[in-house]
Design a protein around this nucleic acid. Structure first.
Lengths: 137, 137
DNA sequence: TTTAAATGGATAATTATTTTCTTTTAAGAA
DNA sequence: TTCTTAAAAGAAAATAATTATCCATTTAAA
């Protein structure tokens, strides 16, 4: 949370209750919520906050490196306050999105650089299957 | 192309000029076009074809395993007639999407299965950077 | 050739996201 | 602490991609 305050100040953005709340939601969950979900989680505490504020805030967070945007193949984006480069795994039945260990596959970027002629900067790795709960059904 | 005819027949879908044309576009390109792009590529040949037809057809192709849908982080999907599980690399400047060799990283699914308690079925690997053209600028 | 079922095309409807505009607020200056 | 003001919030309208609906037409199987 100090991270949030420090970064916002650094970049010249104002520190507002809404921004703090949105960051808190993201920082306290492992579930990689969408804008809509964040909105619902905060509607009791901030009854007047609009979805536009969520989107604008997420945009700022993204630009500032405070969150990363995930594209797991749904019709909306999800957000993760863990900005370290780490893979995700998605349950095809319950649509849960879990983290995978960050140290898994750290070497892949270099290998791709060798075979591709691209200057490789980042990656997004998504695995799909059935989660521990759903695979038993 | 025989694949298309065989699969459609197998699954009980009718073979129509539009479907053949859409599959032809996808099968003859490496550029992973979106629905919109496919639409534009075919508008001379099929001036009356609507975008809805493209979307409906892509849905059928997807369900039938004739194409795969890519989610490279844009606001629209891209489509690939190469349904083999292979990684992609996206240029952050010109937005080109290239294929990476299929045999790269075939073992990853098993490794994830070991550490995750998921039953892992598939994966999507996206790398980001600058393409050979753009990296020189 | 016949005919039921599937498809295509036009259009309206959805859904996620972005923009616009007005009011409110955070943060530094006085 | 109060004042000032640019930035932010909120409401509502606008976009853009995608999906659904409806009906005339086409396809494929008998």
């Amino acid at each position: 949370m100090e991270t949030l305050l420090k970064v916002l100040k650094e970049k010249g953005y104002k520190i507002t209750p809404q921004r703090i709340a949105i960051y808190r939601v993201l920082n306290n969950t492992k579930e990689h919520p969408s804008a809509e979900i964040i909105y619902k989680k905060l509607e009791k505490e901030f009854p007047t906050m609009s979805l536009a504020t969520i989107y604008k805030t997420l945009e700022i967070f993204k630009k500032s490196g405070l969150v990363q945007e995930l594209n797991v193949g749904e019709n909306s984006f999800r957000y993760d306050a863990n900005v370290k480069d780490h893979p995700h795994i998605i349950c095809l039945k319950c649509n849960k999105v879990d983290d995978l260990p960050e140290n898994l596959f750290t070497h892949l970027k270099d290998e791709v650089g060798k075979v591709s002629d691209y200057k490789v900067l980042s990656k997004q790795l998504y695995f799909y299957g059935y989660c521990p709960v759903c695979k038993g059904e």
